[in-house]
Design a protein around this nucleic acid. Structure first.
Length: 641
DNA sequence: TCAGAACCTCTTTTT
DNA sequence: GAGGTTCTGA
């Protein structure tokens, strides 16, 4: 361990050795904060003899959690039982054992994702007779999400806003939405956090237990926490006060989804005795790149002053290319990559193309394809979000708890078995009238008038199928159950007989079996329940296995936390980056600027910037103006090509 | 019940 | 301009 500390600079070492009491680490981009966190955990265990089980480390993504755990374990050469996970995974784990203390929830609760949420909201609107035009489901969901971030129950929301004509209706929607979630024994992503806070607030003994368990708490990416997460951390850290938060206010780019930059800016107010350590030495980029980044971010107000520096040397100037249009821009980027790969013998993995919006990737993708250059696109759709995967998941949920109406509804006619909307409406009406679940209505299908003979037989077959699958689930592992589901339901067969797209889908649901097998290997708890939770909280499984050779394309947001030797930031035009929506809002503009800062600091050696003179967006093309961010970089750092 | 037509929308995204 | 959703008619 002694020589491990030698691997750190003065500030880093200070951060590792300051183990007692509140600590704020302001870690600039590329300043080795992950290193500090992992060493700190190792130091706690090895030097301070802290039990690993007394440590809680919160990360932003599952991937980061996995990496951190692996790095600690390789530092200590052993396997340790500490909690290193995302907020959601940690809370889900707590709720798994404690959820019955919350009224109305059963232990085998399921986790609803955005897709499920939209469906529930639509049901709510229908039931309340509210128009989707006046109350757009997505808008409703984001209101509800923000409300939950603020720890506001439907009751509290109604108390506060109920006198407003429209907000009263939103409150009704929120209230019904929660009822429906409960009826499905489901929690959405926000609930997982919110309910944990409620659990702690209403059960002092439970809170005390976890306060005692987590004597040392670390939170990464603290600038991107929301109010609910802030509360959670503060509740847990209250008794031991060994709270270490790490973050960079200049990299707060998620305020649009509730991240409150104030959490990090006010940490010293919350904890007046907090030790503050700034990590400003950068180990990633050239001085030229850092000068550009510093110069851009300097224009933001109200930030903690920080100035990145490096011993890496000046490096190459930044290259700016003004293209005719987006095709020319793509041509230039791919041309440069081709040239550098050849002349400088660079791996395709060294290149990243970053853009503000996903739609910008299309043109560049086409060019890569035309030239036969391999590429991969990060982000976009999760494996779990694919229609066919969600269908199979719905089967699994239904098997686990057939009273979850949403799951039954999703699969009752997948694959097509002649149970259409008319039939479903009758079944739902019956269920509502008798106070039963949809599944129970299926059992009584004979006593429902108006359903045709054919449909009735299909329903009986379906009920039999579910019953059989439930039997299988009693005895078999998750992977075996999935196999039975896709075989017995006939779903796989239908897909395999379909067009290319369907065949691809068939492959995906088979892939789900591999995912389950992998899960069973890695986890002691190989139950269906555990697998479902894992899937719901997992972001992108494809990312985990495939490390294909190729250039990387992604949004600036997705690039946070990553680094590449050569980075291209494209589409530097007013209205695109910064986005038009930020023009009249200083806060939004500052967030765009932080996004630029994040993008620039991803580059190790070379940075390319580009814009197009003319760009086609939404089918219509128009002339553009160069992004103000280009002007915010000193001219002497940049050459035009 | 379902396929095709018309229609709408369109920043960023993790969990 | 594309992709997703809803509507309409057979």
């Amino acid at each position: 361990m002694e020589n491990l500390l030698d691997n750190l600079n003065k500030q880093q070492r200070e951060a590792v050795e300051h183990t007692e009491g509140p600590l704020l680490i302001l870690a600039g981009a590329g300043s080795g904060k992950t290193r500090v966190l992992t060493y700190r955990i190792a130091y706690l265990i090895n030097e301070k003899n802290v039990y690993p089980s007394n440590i809680l480390a919160i990360t932003f993504t599952n991937k980061a959690a996995k990496e951190m755990k692996e790095r600690v374990q390789s530092l200590l050469e052993g396997s340790y039982d500490m909690w290193v996970s995302t907020f959601h995974a940690a809370c889900a784990r707590i709720l798994r054992t404690q959820v019955e203390k919350l009224d109305g929830y059963k232990k085998n609760f399921i986790i609803f994702d955005t897709d499920d949420q939209v469906k529930v909201i639509k049901e709510c609107l229908k039931e309340l007779n509210y128009n989707e035009k006046n109350f757009p489901p997505k808008e409703m969901l984001s209101s509800i999400s923000k409300t939950k971030d603020q720890l506001m129950t439907p009751g509290r929301f109604m108390d506060r806003y109920g006198r407003d004509f429209r907000l009263k209706k939103v409150a009704d929607i929120y209230s019904l939405y929660q009822k429906k979630l409960m009826a499905n024994n489901a929690l959405d992503f926000d609930d997982i956090l919110f309910k944990t806070v409620e659990l702690f607030q209403n059960n002092p003994d439970v809170l005390q237990y976890y306060q005692n368990k987590f004597k040392y708490i670390m939170v990464d990416e603290y600038q991107d926490t929301n109010y609910c997460q802030y509360m959670l951390v503060n509740l847990l850290a209250k008794s031991h006060r060994n709270l270490c938060v790490v973050g960079d206010d200049d990299q707060c780019i998620y305020s649009w989804r509730g991240a409150d930059i104030g959490n990090i800016l006010n940490f010293e107010k919350d904890f007046p005795d907090a030790k503050v350590i700034k990590l400003e030495q950068n180990y990633r980029s050239t001085q030229t790149i850092l000068d550009a980044a510093n110069s851009v971010i300097d224009r933001n107000f109200g930030r903690k002053s920080k100035r990145l520096w490096t011993e890496n040397g000046e490096g190459k100037p930044i290259v700016y290319y003004k293209a005719m249009d987006e095709r020319d821009e793509g041509d230039f980027i791919i041309g440069e990559i081709d040239r550098l790969a050849f002349q400088e013998h660079r791996d395709l993995k060294s290149f990243a193309i970053l853009y503000r919006t996903n739609s910008q990737s299309r043109v560049i993708e086409e060019m890569c394809m035309a030239r036969g250059i391999p590429y991969k696109i990060v982000g976009g759709h999760r494996f779990y979000d694919r229609m066919e995967v969600k269908d199979v998941i719905a089967y699994l949920r239904a098997i686990q708890d057939p009273d979850g109406d949403l799951s039954i509804k999703r699969i009752i006619n997948v694959p097509k078995r002649g149970i259409g909307k008319a039939t479903l409406d009758l079944l739902e009406a019956y269920a509502r009238d008798t106070g039963n679940s949809l599944y129970e209505a299926l059992l009584f299908v004979d006593s429902i008038d108006g359903i045709g003979k054919k449909a009735k037989n299909s329903i009986k077959d379906f009920v039999r199928l579910i019953a059989e699958l439930m039997d299988v689930a009693e005895k078999e592992s998750a992977s075996a159950v999935i196999n039975e589901v896709i075989m017995r339901s006939g779903y796989l067969e239908v897909l395999e007989k379909g067009d290319d797209e369907d065949q691809e889908r068939g492959k995906n649901i088979k892939e789900l079996i591999s995912a389950a097998l992998e899960y069973e290997e890695k986890n002691e708890d190989s139950s269906l329940q555990g697998f479902l939770e894992n899937m719901a909280l997992m972001s992108d499984i494809d990312g985990l296995k495939e490390e294909r050779e190729g250039i990387t394309m992604m949004t600036l947001h997705s690039a946070k936390g990553l680094e590449f030797p050569v980075v291209f930031i494209c589409g530097l035009e007013e209205g695109l980056f910064p986005t038009q929506r930020a023009f009249f809002d200083e806060h939004q503009l500052e967030e765009e600027r932080r996004l630029m800062y994040v993008g620039v600091t991803r580059a190790r050696e070379k940075l390319y910037l580009s814009s197009a003179f003319e760009r086609t967006i939404y089918g219509s093309s128009s002339y553009t103006m160069e992004s103000r961010f280009l002007r915010e970089i000193p001219k002497d750092l940049m050459i035009k090509m």
